[in-house]
Simulated assay, not measured.
Amino acid sequence: MAGSTAVLAAILLVDLAAFGLAIGAVQSHPSARLETDERKEWTYCVYRPDAATALGGVALALLLVGQAVAVFASRCFCCGAALRPGGARACALILFLSSWVTFIVAEACLLAGLVQSAYHTGYRRVFFENPPDCATVRKGTFVASAAFALFTCVLTSAYYYCFSKARVNFHRQQATIGMTPL
């Protein structure tokens, strides 16, 4: 197998853990209910404690770590060693760009889910007015983040494999200058 097996295993392990935590954030979907005070003057939202915010935050950090491991191991594709021309290099370039697109989308979805999950409304309305809107995170936000985290895992692992395959056994020929006596 081309490249470091330990690096590839680390990328897979961290990204799959981020995927699992994003799925866990979907399962611990926060809920809220309306309550009124004792005098029946105010209505407010009471939120059930949820773990979605913590799980989403850890998933966000792990996804970032997985991408950082791939970038540092491959020296960011453009700053590293010379690559053998051919299909492996072209595939590595396409996978590099694709993995970054899916990574950015996954991070944006996780961040949006974190912000929505952490936002809790307080005392909002007088009792005889419309009841407050108890904002909770939509399940689709964390589902999308989990899907894109899985795509990022697959694309980043494939990128590192193709990159290391293109890097193996490629040495530039040294320029030689003939030094013959006149």
Rank of each mutant, 00 (worst) to 15 (best):
Q173N: 07
Y160R: 08
A144V: 06
F127H: 13
A108Q: 03
Y123A: 12
S164M: 13
A68M: 14
Q174L: 10
A112N: 01
A147W: 06
E129C: 09
S164F: 13
A70S: 13
V126G: 05
R172N: 08
Y161T: 09
V101R: 08
Y160N: 04
C162F: 14
G122T: 09
R89S: 06
Y160I: 03
H171C: 06
G87S: 10
F151H: 11
K165F: 08
R125M: 00
S164W: 12
N169M: 00
A92W: 04
A68E: 09
L110K: 12
V65A: 15
A90D: 09
L64W: 08
C153M: 14
R125T: 05
A106D: 13
G178Q: 11
V137D: 07
F142N: 09
S74Y: 01
E129P: 04
C91P: 00
V137A: 11
S117W: 06
R172C: 05
V137G: 06
L95N: 05
A147K: 06
S74C: 07
G140C: 03
Q174V: 07
T176L: 11
R124S: 15
A81H: 13
C91E: 08
L62F: 14
C76R: 11
R75G: 02
V69Y: 02
V65M: 13
A92C: 05
S99T: 01
F128W: 15
